[in-house]
């Protein structure tokens, strides 16, 4: 606990507490639609944090992160549908498979010194050929999609992750802020410092005794496991899975927008980024619909514009800017001014 909260300014803790408290009572206040928007925002905040560990802290760019979402999703869903295994057990299998995939990609790349853009390309390649594989994988529905039984329940069955939106809302709320705590804990350990050293300069990192291969592998594996857990959630929330959607390139891009906009290499950046991006995107969709405009892809266009603006004016992301304005200690962030 000390390693998570120690040294964090009271003001930051207060604001965080306020945020969590309002999110906890939100289901009692807002309507079903708004709740679904917050829910999906929290989902992107969660997977964004997972990606941020690997890119923002360890400096390893993955552009195929949806691979882990898809593996977690399909594994837990298949175990549940075919064998009736609870997702609370299935998630461990899903995470293990994602970790194995991450380890495979990492060991290939890092062993042979493939870095930067080439590493990113490798992650895309793995996600893409996994998509093609699943498009021909009849056991999980292939191209036709894989569906979880939808039951109309009044009560929630948490053990099988079957229930209404409110249950899912609290699950992702918990995951999102548990991830924040776990990340803070990791980043304040030797591991976190080693990751940042590798991000800043690999050669210098090696010279101070850091086994860069090992620590990059750990980053990929932890990030893969966290992301896969997000996949389990999304599978049981949406009840349907399609290879093109679960493993699609557009999903990988969507996943990394929040941390980039919020601030890579900052703890709170991915959460802030998600809360900026997702509600705006949804709001825009509603606005367009109410004006009778049916423009497919307008949300993507909007994301593109936001990304341009951020990269042009605040390349470090929004969080460093805001945290300074709020007078929150720079220690909330990984890197300070």
């Amino acid at each position: 606990m000390e390693r998570i909260f120690g040294g964090v300014p009271k003001r930051a803790l207060g604001l965080l507490g306020l945020m969590i408290a309002s999110l906890i009572i939100a289901p009692a206040i807002v309507n079903a639609y708004v709740l679904s928007v917050i829910l999906i925002t929290l989902y992107f905040a969660y997977v964004g944090q997972a990606w941020n560990l690997m890119m923002g802290y360890a400096g390893q760019l993955s552009l195929g992160h949806t691979l882990y979402v898809g593996l977690g999703a399909y594994t837990s869903a298949a175990l549940f549908v075919h064998f009736g295994i609870s997702p609370l057990i299935g998630l461990f299998v899903g995470m293990a498979i994602a970790v194995a995939a991450g380890a495979l990609i990492g060991s290939m790349a890092f062993r042979f010194g493939i870095g930067g853009v080439y590493f990113a390309l490798l992650t895309i390649a793995f996600a893409e050929f996994t998509r093609i594989l699943f498009e021909h994988f009849d056991w999980v529905g292939a191209m036709g999609g894989f569906f979880l039984p939808v039951e109309n329940r009044d009560s929630s069955d948490f053990l099988n992750l079957r229930g209404g939106p409110v249950m899912f809302y609290y699950v992702i709320l918990f995951l999102c802020f548990a991830a924040l705590g776990v990340n803070q804990w990791l980043l304040r350990s030797r591991l976190g410092y080693y990751w940042m050293a590798i991000r800043e300069d690999q050669e210098a990192a090696q010279a101070v005794g850091i086994n860069t291969f090992r620590y990059k592998m750990i980053a990929v594996m932890i990030s893969a496991a966290m992301t896969a857990l997000g996949g389990v959630f999304i599978a049981f929330y949406y009840n349907n899975l399609f290879p093109a959607d679960a493993f699609g390139m557009h999903r990988s891009i969507e996943l990394i927008l929040a941390p980039i906009i919020g601030g890579m290499g900052t703890l709170f950046g991915p959460i802030l980024g998600a809360f900026i991006l997702t509600p705006l995107g949804e709001g825009l969709t509603i606005l367009m619909e109410s004006m009778g405009v049916k423009a497919a892809g307008v949300k993507q266009l909007f994301y593109g514009v936001i990304l341009l603006v951020i990269i042009r004016f605040v390349p470090g992301g929004v969080w460093p800017l805001i945290s300074k304005k709020l007078g929150i200690d720079k220690r909330m962030k990984g890197k300070s001014e």
Binding site: Y194, D201, E203
Partner: peptide, 26 residues
């Protein structure tokens, strides 16, 4: 080859972590 985006203290702290796994000691 400094770790540019880390503080001066953290730069040296990373080095000191070779001798101890504890960040506070480092």
């Amino acid at each position: 080859k400094p770790f540019n985006d880390l503080s001066v203290l953290d730069n040296v702290l990373v080095g000191a972590l070779r001798k101890t796994p504890h960040v506070d000691e480092a």
